[in-house]
């Protein structure tokens, strides 16, 4: 009798449950999506950029003969993750010429996670690459900032250099920045049909200094998603912020060490990383910029950088050791 009553209450029990339609949509989306390889880190990005640039030089031999007198191309803006920044990209126009190369600082953008400079080089150049050839960025306080990534298009001479974020109090005061370059690498280093062939030495020494004043786009904190439990590891969100162009996410990890997250599972090739993290825009496009792993006394720390293309629900996908989970970030 009493068992029956309890059974009936359980049968009729009303409670919140996941929305089957939404879960189905996510599952089918994830199932159809190929397992993504790890996000290219800076080294891989630089290498890939070099390959692309070399390929462009090879397949478009006359492309670097004339610097296209056009605005920064939309695809490069997308590559820089600045499509969401709108008119917050500061037009600069500073020019420096040396050793037959002309560098123009076309635009700049800064927020609390990165500083992006948009340049045009004539003749075109290749990414400079670390460590000794890094361009130096400094602010009015004399502080210098490291390069995070570089991207060039040797067809047009357009260059995107991304530096780490400007330090306090630049966000309040704005920043007077100076970019100093002492070495450039010609884009036509090896192709014999280039209009400006260089037989053996692609490096060009000189002195280029470009100055600009930029505002710093403040980011706003977003609601922290629920922790993600994947296998033995728990990923706790400690900060999620969004500016007009960037989504910054910080996480701490329990149940896995820094080395655990770096492991790769043998697959007969380079190995599959056990940990991946990706961000997808509301339209499904990838919005991942980069991420870095750090560590403190309490365990691993993850700093993730994504591109904000506009407002909407962004999907953060985390996988670890065969388990994966999605977290939605509602970005205003």
């Amino acid at each position: 009798m009493t068992i029956d009553a309890l059974e009936q209450r359980l049968t009729d029990l009303a409670f919140d449950r996941p929305d089957a339609g939404r879960v189905t949509a996510r599952v089918l989306s994830l199932a159809r999506k190929r397992r993504r390889r790890a996000v290219a880190r800076l080294g891989a990005l630089a290498a890939a950029t070099l390959l692309i640039a070399a390929a462009v030089v090879y397949f478009v031999p006359a492309a670097d003969a004339v610097l296209a007198d056009t605005p920064i191309a939309g695809d490069l803006l997308r590559s820089a993750g600045l499509t969401g920044a709108g008119n917050r990209v500061t037009a600069v126009g500073a020019v420096a010429s040396s050793s037959g190369f002309r560098l123009q600082l076309v635009g700049a953008y800064a927020d609390s996670t990165r500083t992006v400079l948009l340049l045009r080089a004539n003749p075109a150049i290749l990414p400079l690459g670390p460590p000794s050839l890094d361009p130096q960025l400094s602010d009015q306080f004399g502080r210098t900032y490291h390069v995070q990534s570089e991207l060039t298009d040797s067809r047009t001479g357009q260059v995107i250099i991304e530096f780490e974020a400007l330090a306090w109090p630049d966000a309040l005061t704005g920043a007077r920045i100076a970019l100093k370059v002492t070495t450039l690498k010609r884009a036509c280093a090896s192709a014999p049909f280039c209009t400006d062939p260089v037989s053996s030495e692609p490096m060009v020494r000189g002195s280029w200094t470009l100055r600009a004043t930029v505002g710093v786009d403040e980011s706003t904190p977003l609601a922290l998603p629920a922790p993600a439990h994947l296998g033995p590891a728990t990923f706790n969100f400690t900060s999620v912020r969004s500016s007009l162009a960037t989504i910054g996410i910080e996480m701490s990890v329990k149940g896995a060490t820094f080395d655990d997250l770096q492991q790769r599972v043998a697959d007969g090739r380079k190995g599959t990383p056990v940990f991946t993290i990706d961000l997808f825009a509301p339209n499904g496009d990838t919005a991942t910029a980069s991420y870095s792993l750090g560590e403190d006394q309490r365990g691993p720390l993850i700093q993730f950088l994504g591109y904000r293309f506009g407002p909407g629900n962004y999907r953060l996908h985390i996988s670890y050791r065969g388990s994966d989970v999605d977290r939605l970030l509602t970005v205003p």
Binding site: R17, P18, V23, A226
Partner: peptide, 23 residues
């Protein structure tokens, strides 16, 4: 989803479980 909602400790856990199980 009903199974997940019934046993999971929170709605986000239920979401995760339903997605994980179906996937």
């Amino acid at each position: 989803c009903r199974f997940a909602g019934m046993i999971a400790g929170s709605s986000s856990d239920a979401d995760d479980l339903a997605q994980d199980a179906l996937l």
